[in-house]
Simulated scan of single mutants.
Amino acid sequence: MYSYKYPRPALTVDALVYVKEESDIFVLLIQRGIEPFKGMWALPGGFVNMDELLETACKRELEEETGLQVKKMDQFKAFDAINRDPRHRTISVVFSVQLPEKTDVKGGDDAASAKWFSVNNLPEMAFDHRKILEEYF
Rank of each mutant, 00 (worst) to 15 (best):
K72A: 08
V70C: 05
N120H: 09
P9T: 13
L16D: 12
A126V: 08
Y2P: 07
A78Q: 02
Q75M: 15
P36T: 12
L99P: 03
R130K: 15
V48L: 05
E55Q: 14
L54F: 14
E134P: 05
K72R: 12
T66M: 10
K77R: 13
P123V: 02
L122W: 05
E101P: 00
M40P: 01
Y4H: 11
R8N: 07
L62M: 04
V48P: 03
F79C: 05
K59W: 04
R84D: 06
D109E: 06
M73N: 00
Y4S: 09
W116Q: 07
M50D: 03
D104N: 10
A81N: 10
A114E: 06
Y6M: 10
N121R: 08
V97D: 01
E63N: 08
F117V: 10
L54M: 08
V27G: 15
Q75W: 14
S113L: 00
G33N: 13
S3K: 09
R84M: 06
G33Y: 08
R60I: 00
N83G: 07
L54W: 00
P9V: 13
S23A: 14
Y6W: 07
E22M: 10
C58N: 01
R32I: 09
K72T: 11
D128E: 09
E64G: 00
M73P: 00
S118L: 02
F47H: 01
N49I: 01
S3V: 10
I30S: 15
L62D: 04
L99G: 02
Q69C: 06
F37V: 04
W41H: 12
Y4W: 13
V70K: 04
P44C: 04
I30D: 14
P9E: 11
Y2I: 10
E61G: 00
V97R: 09
Q69L: 07
P36C: 11
D104E: 11
K102Q: 08
N83P: 03
R84A: 04
